[in-house]
Design a protein around this nucleic acid. Structure first.
Lengths: 136, 136
DNA sequence: CCCAATCATGACAATCATTGTCAACATCTA
DNA sequence: TAGATGTTGACAATGATTGTCATGATTGGG
C-alpha cells in the first residue's frame, strides 16, 4: 500500500498557491478550476488558468483537496477536512457538501466483492440531492 | 417521479442501430462509443461516429444499456440485463463486469440523506477490483 | 544581503471526446 | 408506392484539460 508522499511536488510556496488555498478555505462547496480562476481574476489576480489547473492537481495528489467528477465530466475541487476515507452528499442545487463516513458501505462492498471472487476491491460512491435549504 | 417513457425516442429500426445492438450482445465488457465505431468500420460498416454517439445515448435513455464513466471522463456502454436499479463490480484488468443489487446501500443512502435534511436523493456507486481470473 | 539554481508561472497552441448542423437518405404507414 | 418524417453522416464547433517554453519568482548557500 504505497502511502502517498506528503507533497514532494509543490516544493515552493507562492502567491498563487496561497491564493487558491485561501479561496478554498472560505468555501465549503465544490468548485471547478475555471470557477476558481474566474474568481481570482475578478479579485484582481493575474493568475493563469494553467496554473490553477496544475495547482489543483497537485493539491489533489497531496490529499489536500477532494476531487469529484460532474456528470458532464468536469473536475470539481474542495478542501477536505477528514483524513479518513469518506463520501460526499452534495446538493445539486447549491453545491453545499456534507462529508459522510460509510462503514456500512465499506463492509457491503467487501462482502459483495468476495462473494464474486474479486480481490483488491475499491469503490466510488457519491450521493446527490437537495439540501434542506434548497428543498423549500 | 417521472417514470421514463419506454423509448419514445428511437421510433425506427435501422441497420446502424441493429449493428450496434448486436455488437453489444456479443460483448460483456464496457465499450466506448469510439471503440464501437472503430469495430464497426473495421467490419466494413460505413456508420458515422456521430450516429454511434447518438444511438448509445438513446439506448442509455431507454435503459437498454448501462453507462459508466471512466476516470478520464469518457463514457462506456454495456448492454444491461437487469431491469431494476443495480451497480457494477468491474474487473480493472479484463473489464469483466458483474451486476449486483444493493438494497443495503439504497437504504443506507436514504437514511444518511434524511439525517442531513436532504431530499430527492440519488446515488452513484461503482466497485472495481480484480476478478478471480485476473487475481492469479 | 546577493546570486545562482531551479521550480513555478502564464500566454498560447494543441488534444480529444463529445455535440451541433444540415442536406441527403432510409423507414414506415396509409 | 408515395410521402411524411425520423435518421444518418461528413464536417465544423465546442470546451475542458494538457503540453510547451520563455520569463519570472523563490530559496538556500556563500
Amino acid at each position: 500500500m504505497a502511502t502517498k508522499p506528503p507533497a514532494e511536488n509543490m516544493a515552493r510556496s507562492t502567491k498563487q498557491r496561497t491564493a487558491i488555498l485561501e479561496l478554498l478555505e472560505h468555501d465549503d462547496a465544490f468548485r471547478s478550476a475555471q470557477d476558481l480562476h474566474a474568481i481570482l481574476r475578478e479579485a484582481g489576480s493575474k493568475i493563469g488558468l494553467t496554473t490553477v489547473y496544475r495547482t489543483l492537481q497537485a493539491f489533489a495528489e497531496a490529499d489536500i483537496v477532494d476531487v469529484m467528477r460532474l456528470p458532464g465530466g468536469d473536475h470539481l475541487y474542495r478542501l477536505c477536512s477528514a483524513e479518513e476515507h469518506h463520501h460526499h452528499l452534495v446538493c445539486r442545487s447549491c453545491g453545499r457538501t456534507v462529508e459522510v463516513a460509510g462503514p456500512t458501505v465499506e463492509r457491503w462492498a467487501n462482502k459483495v466483492a468476495a462473494d464474486h471472487g474479486f480481490t483488491d476491491v475499491g469503490h466510488t460512491l457519491e450521493l446527490h440531492g437537495l439540501c434542506a435549504e434548497c428543498s423549500k
